[in-house]
Design a protein around this nucleic acid. Structure first.
Lengths: 222, 222
DNA sequence: TATTACATTACGGAATCACGTAAGGAATAT
DNA sequence: ATATTCCTTACGTGATTCCGTAATGTAATA
């Protein structure tokens, strides 16, 4: 079994149960942090001391509070961790159930397992840890049924997300165009952006921009 | 201390910790359910058997799954419970931190305490249970700092919510006006609705309708 | 009844969105 | 080199929003 595991989870009510699972599995060293930044620090420190972690179990969303945070989400944490210790195994344990988000965790961040917090998630988490230890890949808890071959959501790329984000912040077409030019994101003509928004509206069956943003919010895209 | 407590919480990872708290407090009878409907049934049954619950600790949001649910949220559960056993003490334990929502729990549903799931919520929950037992009222966990006298959010009424809902469904002004006429919601002139939307935009500092809906989604108003 | 105050509705012009068509460029094929 | 195709950008028209002002309706008051 894993020898040294780090748990990044802000809710104390949940971390208690996660730590319990690891104890059941007889993991000798279990550390637990409530902030992403703290997690990265611990991983770096362990590396320096030549006693690196085997496994990171992380939540996705962390509450913000008075502390100023550099890393504010599990995604960011994992991205940062991949830069210092790419070989570490990563399991995400979160309430998120949007396939778009979860797919990108596997494809872009290289996690081994995704367990969605639910009515039977402790058992699922246990299984995921064991399977990960046995070098299995792309483990998704059973209550989430989506196909990795489902092209639909993959086709929405970061470009679209950028547009949706700016729209949701009250930008009008022209401002988005200007912003994209500043950030040298291309294409950045108002027409191109307009056309892209149009595709999104067709794809999501939205009547207008307002409707589109409401849907995007529901899908957790912004 | 309370003699018989019911916990309504769908996430097993959390309910474990909640039950542990109650055990610490030496509560002799602790029951736990994962569905709202089940909770109501148990409360009714206990009433019939003349061994009613003293306290209900409930989450607000419950994941939906294959089971068809009559009650789908903590709000609905508490509303239903109030009809059969209004005297039962009620504590809400949820991730929700929007003052608009929380206020209505105290004012409309008569809960005694609200504990927001966070980094130190287990201790907060413990305190809330003890305080509730001592008949204290309107207990809000310390990380949530909002005033009960803050009029601002109270002024957003169901009329505004209706407008926001329809907007988020892609309705244009004219369609909203027509819909309101059909439902005999008044005022229903396009101008009045327009003016109201305007007020909302000023209130929420939104640049346009798209922005407004994004904000409303964030606030959990729709 | 007449007056006032307030809420609702109507109207009009400017800005923005919505959507189709066309012009300009870059890459590839012939 | 020329043609073809695809992508990006530009433009034009109608719909909708945006925002101010005016007209209408309604309820309370004199």
């Amino acid at each position: 079994m894993f020898k040294k595991v780090l748990v990044a989870e802000d809710l104390d009510s949940i971390s208690i149960a996660v730590v319990q699972v690891l104890e059941d599995l007889q993991v000798p060293v279990i550390d637990h942090v409530k902030y992403c930044d703290e997690a990265l620090l611990k991983i770096k420190k362990a590396l320096l001391e030549k006693e690196p972690y085997d496994l990171l179990i992380s939540d996705l969303s962390f509450k913000s509070d008075h502390r100023k945070a550099i890393l504010s989400s599990g995604d960011e944490l994992i991205e940062a961790v991949n830069k210092v210790q790419p070989t570490i195994k990563k399991i995400v344990f979160s309430i998120e159930d949007k396939s778009y988000r979860i797919k990108s965790l596997f494809n872009d961040l290289g996690i081994s397992a995704y367990v969605s917090k639910g009515r039977n998630s402790i058992a699922e988490l246990k299984n995921a840890i064991v399977s990960t230890y046995n070098n299995e890949e792309k483990i998704v808890s059973s209550d989430l049924s989506f196909s990795f071959n489902d092209k639909a959501l993959i086709e929405i790329e970061s470009y679209d997300i950028s547009i949706l984000k700016l729209l949701s912040q009250g930008y009008i077409l022209e401002s988005i165009s200007k912003e994209f030019k500043d950030l040298s994101i291309t294409p950045n003509g108002t027409s191109s952006i307009e056309k892209r928004i149009n595709k999104l509206k067709i794809y999501f069956k939205a009547n207008n921009n307002v409707h589109l943003i409401a849907i995007a919010k529901d899908f957790g895209l912004v």
